[in-house]
Design a binder for these strands. Sequence first.
DNA 1: AAGTTTCCTGAGAGTTATCTGAATATTTAT
DNA 2: ATAAATATTCAGATAACTCTCAGGAAACTT
Lengths: 229, 229
Amino acid sequence: MAGPKILVVDDEPNIRDLLTASLRFAGFQVRAVGNGAATISAVLEDEPDLIVLDVMLPDMNGFSVTKRLRGAGYTSPILFLTAKDSTEDKITGLTVGGDDYVTKPFSLDEIVARIRAILRRTMMEEEESTLKVGEISMDQDSHEVFIGDEVIELSPTEFKLLRYLMLNPNRVVSKAQILDHVWEYDFNGDAGIVESYVSYLRRKLDPFTSEPLIQTKRGFGYMLKSPKA
Amino acid sequence: MAGPKILVVDDEPNIRDLLTASLRFAGFQVRAVGNGAATISAVLEDEPDLIVLDVMLPDMNGFSVTKRLRGAGYTSPILFLTAKDSTEDKITGLTVGGDDYVTKPFSLDEIVARIRAILRRTMMEEEESTLKVGEISMDQDSHEVFIGDEVIELSPTEFKLLRYLMLNPNRVVSKAQILDHVWEYDFNGDAGIVESYVSYLRRKLDPFTSEPLIQTKRGFGYMLKSPKA
DNA sequence: AAGTTTCCTGAGAGTTATCTGAATATTTAT
DNA sequence: ATAAATATTCAGATAACTCTCAGGAAACTT
């Protein structure tokens, strides 16, 4: 019930809310603020286990905030959000220890996966990094997908789509849901692309499975069936 | 969980925090201070197993601090931090016993590696100095890299990059993370240089391996695969 | 059974990531 | 001082990937 505490820092209310909702749903305790000053006090007050920090804030940048936090003795990991096209995207040198970067625009599931990966390493909770559903297993550290001992090569999007399906076994997920979770939040294309990628996945995976992998629930979406449960 | 105790001494909060976070993540117990006077009392109080000491402090220099510490009976090793342009011969007199020095700006992984090397010698902990991943082995003391009994000559940067990859087997590391850990902390160049060095490493290593060494995980980073896991 | 809707998949255009050779700059060694 | 080794930048080539579209197949409706 009481998952790790996460502080979300972004000045765009849209993204803040998007992240807050997603992380709450993923089982984290979430608090969100919109500027650097509020970050400092929120950290001192709550001592979050991880901070999701946009490096472009109205009052300070990621450097200053990190500096202030580390100076105040805060040592928990930070996941930095950086704009990909920004002229000032040379913000290397920020990640120490278990920190990591994610570029905007990101996909919601990608953020959750990265947060889990960091906490797995820093909080030493014996959490499994391998997902297993039926005959498929996916190692989230090495990004490898296995069926039996056959390694399946997947493109980034194929990998993220499969991960989302594997995180929701025995549950029908709609194309709209998939689009919201797997694609970047500013993607404004057609839901038909999900069909294409489901097709790609089937082509790569089905030759190695004993039965078809991804079930189509006509009119509703797709589902990955797990024999157990 | 209780690693060796390390005292970090530097007057620049930036570097102090960078070091603190990195060393904590590496499993050390870390305390940090910012001047010579605080160093003396911290040592007497905590009896650290190693001190990371900037030689240019506001109140005393490395000579004085070391002299005072040795005079007080403190015998544990010291890793000195020196500015590159400062006269290095002054340092040579300081590093006696198990001591060592590193020039600023340093790379975070280099510091951790040097500390580990010193502690290996002084604390006699039966810790392995040879890294092995798949067919490659690396002796961190002699800086030699082997594939089978073939010795591979690597430049300093090539060596550090390979070490970082070998310390993270079966885990995808992004180019930004590599840059932050392997290159000096003030490097503000492009991440493309990582691509160049990966290319160099492959050219030198792949002729001797049975399968390609460094795997590219397009869109995510690079990974070194270890057969056992 | 015919019509309608939804889904599947191949083809292709456009984009992006990565690799590598070569040029330049810098450091180290002689 | 000069030469050699190493570090960094750059740009073209290549390969991989993303996304759209459209015809046909399958499933559902009437």
